[in-house]
Amino acid sequence: MPDFRAHFDFDIRFANGGDLSGTGFRLDLPESDLSEAEIGRLLVQHLGLALVDAVELRGLRIVEEPHRGSRGVGDPAGAPVVATARVVDLSHPIRAGLVTYPGLPAPAITPHLTREASRAKYAPGTEFAMDILTMVGNTGTYLDSPFHRYAEGPDLAGLDLSTLVGLRAEVYHLEDAWIPARRGIRPETLADRDVRGAAVLLHTGWDRWFGRPEYGAGAPYLTGEGAQWLIDAGAVLVGIDSLNIDDTESGGERPAHSLLLGAGVHVVEHLTNLRALPPRGARFTAAPPAVVGFGTFPVRAFAEVPA
């Protein structure tokens, strides 16, 4: 394949004042059919310029000519970024009518501005949709902050992002480690790992029933003793792909929530696709919006797994 270069003079104006001009400039091109605007942006990238307001090229010619190593074209620094990790989505999609937890209201999505109505507000060919989402915070895959359980605890806006983003994930694959007669996950099941500073993700396989009546009864959970062990071991976050981190059939007691949130350990419930993660080596993220006075909200939970 032949190489191509652009020959031109240029004038660059900066948004914060000042300008830069050049004559007889030559720039390697990745292909021959770039527009003048695309070549202008390539020039900005090559020169490493910031706060550019406008680029004007004069006397532009594109010629077949061997590359000379322009930054951003044909060299390692400008080569496309090769992904070093795959991203695994661990969240259930939210849709109108979704039942996350039996007895809680399903989300409703209604239009505020339809695309058809927006056409009267914008230039021809320009349209937007704006919708209203009404839902309880406990919808889909969501995170509980301490405020969810304790009035004096940090709300969503008070959470430290460093405890929610890029956490080392310790994934316990427990599909065969619990039985209906003993649904609780105990400390002994968790004690083989160093979980200090980690997101502990409990893969029970219960997510296969999500959105179906079977999801609401007989679900696995974390015992109070298991929660205390994770606190003492230094876990930062605990997530589960089940109905609840607690046993919802225990008559209203919530020891896992009370202990974890009281200790500042975040809780993420209704995860999914944990089977796609290795026991160790992934990085977990689950960050909610910073809503003041709110204790729980859906997250887009995901894990980055080394390729």
Rank of each mutant, 00 (worst) to 15 (best):
residue 159 L to T: 07
residue 159 L to W: 01
residue 160 D to K: 15
residue 162 S to T: 03
residue 162 S to Y: 04
residue 162 S to F: 11
residue 164 L to W: 06
residue 164 L to Q: 14
residue 165 V to T: 15
residue 165 V to D: 14
residue 166 G to Y: 11
residue 167 L to A: 02
residue 167 L to C: 14
residue 169 A to T: 06
residue 174 L to E: 14
residue 174 L to D: 12
residue 175 E to P: 00
residue 175 E to L: 11
residue 176 D to C: 01
residue 180 P to M: 03
residue 182 R to V: 04
residue 186 R to H: 14
residue 189 T to M: 13
residue 190 L to M: 06
residue 191 A to G: 08
residue 194 D to Y: 02
residue 194 D to W: 05
residue 195 V to R: 04
residue 196 R to A: 15
residue 197 G to W: 07
residue 198 A to H: 07
residue 198 A to V: 08
residue 199 A to W: 02
residue 199 A to C: 04
residue 200 V to M: 09
residue 201 L to C: 09
residue 204 T to K: 11
residue 204 T to Q: 06
residue 205 G to A: 08
residue 206 W to R: 10
residue 208 R to D: 07
residue 212 R to D: 10
residue 214 E to D: 15
residue 214 E to H: 07
residue 215 Y to S: 04
residue 216 G to Y: 13
residue 216 G to H: 15
residue 217 A to D: 08
residue 219 A to C: 11
residue 219 A to F: 06
residue 222 L to D: 00
residue 223 T to R: 07
residue 224 G to S: 01
residue 224 G to R: 00
residue 225 E to K: 13
residue 225 E to P: 02
residue 228 Q to P: 00
residue 228 Q to S: 15
residue 229 W to N: 08
residue 233 A to W: 07
residue 234 G to E: 10
residue 236 V to L: 06
residue 239 G to M: 10
residue 242 S to H: 02
residue 244 N to I: 00
residue 245 I to Y: 01
residue 246 D to N: 15
residue 247 D to W: 01
residue 248 T to F: 15
residue 249 E to S: 15
residue 251 G to D: 10
residue 254 R to T: 15
residue 254 R to E: 12
residue 258 S to A: 12
residue 259 L to S: 13
residue 259 L to Q: 15
residue 261 L to V: 04
residue 262 G to Q: 02
residue 262 G to A: 09
residue 262 G to V: 06
residue 263 A to I: 08
residue 263 A to V: 09
residue 263 A to G: 12
residue 264 G to S: 03
residue 264 G to L: 03
residue 265 V to K: 13
residue 267 V to D: 10
residue 268 V to C: 06
residue 269 E to V: 14
residue 271 L to H: 02
residue 273 N to Y: 06
residue 273 N to F: 09
residue 275 R to E: 12
